[in-house]
Design a protein around this nucleic acid. Structure first.
Lengths: 99, 99
DNA sequence: CCGACCTGTAATGTTTTTATTACAGGTGCA
DNA sequence: TGCACCTGTAATAAAAACATTACAGGTCGG
């Protein structure tokens, strides 16, 4: 992982709102409207945060049909681990590309 | 470490410029002007980035006298480790305060 | 005294991020 | 048909981050 990719991922979690989203989804997938209620946040804003988390690979969402036939967009946390220390920063900077 | 502190630290490293600063200082403390030359960056801008890194506890700087008596502000990397995964995010969110 | 270094920051402009509001459209059910 | 849900996004405003320029002041050596 190069420096740009790494900083992108770090920026994606470096937000109290987004960390709270991860904490709420952890172990309990929720659909957008329900999550918006629990976060006490507008859906539009929540979508913005969810997009950043999804782009960075921390969460994933998919449409699903509820029991009564309504479409729900369920989001869940993807497993991830990032060990940040000086050596891995040096390593990221020295990477020109590659995943 | 609570969510606000953690997001502050993550935001501080979530920048290619600042990651590069850490990489350059790692193992070789440098004074501001010299680092500015190697980074090809203005001192004013470098100070802004260094302040963020110092506030977050990733680097530290102190004045020191060179051999010919001039004052130099030497910066060096402080050891740090951050293991980021869903569980530690949940933990950070559940912390109300404490260091 | 002057030139070549160094530190430190204020003021300003630009860009990006964050947040709000408003809209369009869908399903199920009484 | 009207109500209560849901998804999705465009347009806009407000706030924060980033970057540049310009200045003030210090030490040293020729």
């Amino acid at each position: 992982m190069n420096a740009v990719e790494l900083s992108g991922k770090l920026a994606a979690i470096a937000s109290p709102h987004r960390m709270r989203i991860i904490a709420m989804l952890q172990g309990e997938p929720l659909h957008v409207s329900e999550l918006a209620r629990r976060m006490e946040m507008s859906r539009a804003l929540l979508y913005m945060h969810l997009s950043k988390l999804e782009d960075a690979g921390f969460v994933t969402g998919h449409l699903e049909l509820s029991d009564d036939g309504k479409a729900l967009k369920l989001f869940e946390v993807l497993p991830f681990v990032l060990n940040i220390d000086p050596a891995m920063i040096v390593n990221a900077i020295s990477q020109q590309e590659s995943e």
